[in-house]
Design a protein around this nucleic acid. Sequence first.
RNA 1: GGGAGAGUGUCCCGAGCGGCAAAGGGGGCGGACUGUAAAUCCGCUGGCUAUGCCUUCGUAGGUUCGAGUCCUACCUCUCCCA
Length: 414
Amino acid sequence: MSAYKSDFLNILAERGFIHQVSEPDALDALAVKGPVTGYIGFDCTASSLHVGSLLPIMMLYWMQQSGHRPIALMGGGTTRVGDPSGKDESRRILTDEMINQNLAGIRTIFTKFLKFGSGPRDALMANNADWLNTLNYIDFLRDVGRHFSVNRMLSFDSVKLRLDRQQELSFLEFNYMVLQAYDFVELHKRTGCVLQMGGSDQWGNIVNGIELGRRMANAQLFALTSPLITTSSGAKMGKTAAGAIWLNAAMVRPYDYWQYWRNTEDGDVVRFLKLFTILPLSEIARLGALKGAEINEAKKVLATEATALVHGRDAAHEAAKTADTTFKQGGMGADLPTLQVKVGDGILEANTKLGFTASNSQARQQVTQGAVYLGETKITDPAYRLRAEDFDKDGRALLKFGNKKRAILQLASG
RNA sequence: GGGAGAGUGUCCCGAGCGGCAAAGGGGGCGGACUGUAAAUCCGCUGGCUAUGCCUUCGUAGGUUCGAGUCCUACCUCUCCCA
């Protein structure tokens, strides 16, 4: 199975990161010879990255671990244009302030996975706004644009899809692939970067860069894409009803992040352990051999390891502990969300304020259906009001909503 | 520029003779079963101080006791002709 000679490609292959590689043998040989510089571009469309972006981040991580130099490229310039790949509709145009704000939020995430610096194996952070924003249109057309064939561009999936469905593709978006290709060549010039990685939907864009590099700089560049990760039941990663699973602790609390991974489907556990934790493969194989209910142990490991990478080991253990006291012992873990209440407050309002339900009407329906427990007592009366005896000596009560949602009601003192 | 069609429940898709809080899916949430899994079955899926009241069908007007439904204008998208 280990068809490669380099650690870099072997690790990626064994852990399931590789979908397609251009000229794998040549890249492999290069990686054996010495440090390779490679990059992945990240959009600045939101103020944090979410679980969907974790995969490319992990590729950069392994790249550095196997002795190479990763570059995290912030798309400060390309986000102003908007990537049409895989999108049904035009992306709305973001203001420059928003982009810069988003960029700042995204930046911090990388410091948890990569060691930055100026040494030969230290990671670099770049921003394509640095070179794209100052481009001169005519010069750019003459230097770069002449290498692109519109006939060919029209044949790319990202473009064809839009045209076939007769959905508008603006000239602005049409240029995205040209800019991304130019990024690759520019990074090659600046840092000697020879590899661009990304999701499988980026293949066309990356190959464009490779060709542009050959024409403009006579360089041999490489592409490596990762498979699109969906759960066993076909859903895209990182989205729940509550919204995307962000990596920023302020947007998704570590406890919720832990829970996200804890609730992984059986069929995904091994795959996710390989992709989203840095546990050795032997350990993953051991966990993968667990059967039936024992798989829950593997899921806990997955949750804790994945959380530790993003939020640190302490936060991960805290989340694991809270989950244990809450679900195993029916107690109140420290990490649970807490709501200040008074005696006489309605049960519906409590659920809505905690975000368990979107409105009191919805809360009413769910209470009627038996979804809500106060401690061990099922509450089925929508008009129920909190009573003093519902709380323990410390003025706390455990509110359960459904199977998984838990919160602490804290009686206001005084 | 001319002709034809479309826009529906703030997640999506989609039915809707003038009586409509509006069929049916998907998704989501909840219940049962389990292992905080999947599959399956069942319930819910506009809001509220709730046997009632308020707000929803691209936007703004109009006809009508009553409009998602009919008329007018406008916006957006698609198709055909120029």
